[in-house]
Design a protein around this nucleic acid. Structure first.
Length: 263
DNA sequence: CCAGACGTTGTT
DNA sequence: GTCTGG
DNA sequence: CCAGACGTTGTT
DNA sequence: GTCTGG
């Protein structure tokens, strides 16, 4: 799945990478420990009612989708993932899937695994965490490129506030997950759905509102080439942040190789 | 008809 | 909002 | 996803 | 154990 990730690229870099037309206010700075409920940079398109022009935005969305019909904004924090197998039918997601698709740029994401399985997966000893404390891993593209995670967004209005009050509108998002490929399937059976550059336009086009076509696009998408390596449990606390969270965990055994092997 | 749900993940 | 269950 | 909290009483 | 907050 995807319950924590890193997104550290600058707004300018992301705008160039995703060929964005407009950069919005309120974008968060580099975040190496993105947790549900925080604002993340997102790429999506909106069509002007007046001119009919579609423009691509880089704008903040809050992670944890709140459907438009929700009675309150709290509780949406649970909807951080949507399964690709059912996203077109589930009441919480189908409307967004048809009309409000987005891309969530990430450096990579974190995955926690029980120590025994983590040792088996990484094929090496790992620091003693006991039997129950999980070992975090960071998973990224093997080519070091931006991970364009497929997402959906919703706009929820606080009924207690006026329509022209900007704070009345809450824009939230969720990450679509799919079956993990072999490379990272050892770590976890789910992973985020990743969109290739060649499919950005079709995925983001809000005029393309046929769910079957969006599903077809995902089914022909090549699975991303990913690699995973263990990192420090520092990432467990959402208060901890910074590039050091991405550092490969040093090998427990002193065999002269202090770079952790990738798996 | 009204009431109530509407999601994902983990898994000793 | 829209569907399912009673 | 993990960390941290987890409560009651009064009541025009 | 289960929910909320980040």
């Amino acid at each position: 799945m995807c319950g924590r990730y890193a997104t550290s690229r600058s707004s300018d870099d992301l705008a160039a990478e995703f060929e964005v037309d407009d950069i919005f206010d309120g974008l968060p700075g580099p975040d190496y420990n993105v947790a549900p409920t925080v604002a993340v940079p997102a790429v999506f398109e909106r069509t002007s009612k007046d001119t009919g022009e579609t423009r691509r935005r880089l704008a903040p969305l809050v992670w944890g989708l709140v459907p438009s019909w929700s009675k309150s904004a709290t509780g949406g924090a649970k909807l951080i993932n949507a399964r690709v197998e059912s996203v077109a039918e589930k009441p919480s997601f189908r409307r967004a899937f048809a009309a409000r698709r987005c891309l969530l740029p990430a450096d990579g994401y974190y995955e926690w695994y029980l120590p025994e399985a983590a040792r088996a997966a990484s094929g090496r000893p790992l620091p003693g965490l006991g039997k129950t404390k999980k070992q975090p891993f960071f998973i990224r593209r093997t080519d070091g490129g931006v991970l364009a995670m497929a997402g959906l967004y919703e706009i929820w209005r606080d009924p207690a506030k006026d329509r022209d009050d900007e704070t009345a509108w809450l824009r939230t998002c969720t990450v679509i997950t799919t079956e993990a490929t072999d490379a990272v399937g050892h770590i976890h059976d789910r992973m985020p759905m990743v969109i290739g550059e060649e499919s950005f336009d079709a995925w983001l086009d809000p005029k393309q509102d046929d769910p079957a076509a969006a599903l077809e696009l995902l089914s022909v998408t090549d699975p991303a080439q990913l690699e995973a390596y263990p990192v420090s449990t520092e990432v467990n606390r959402v208060q901890n942040n910074g590039p050091s969270l991405l550092l490969p965990l040093a090998d427990d055994e002193d065999d002269g190789d202090d770079q952790a092997p990738l798996i």
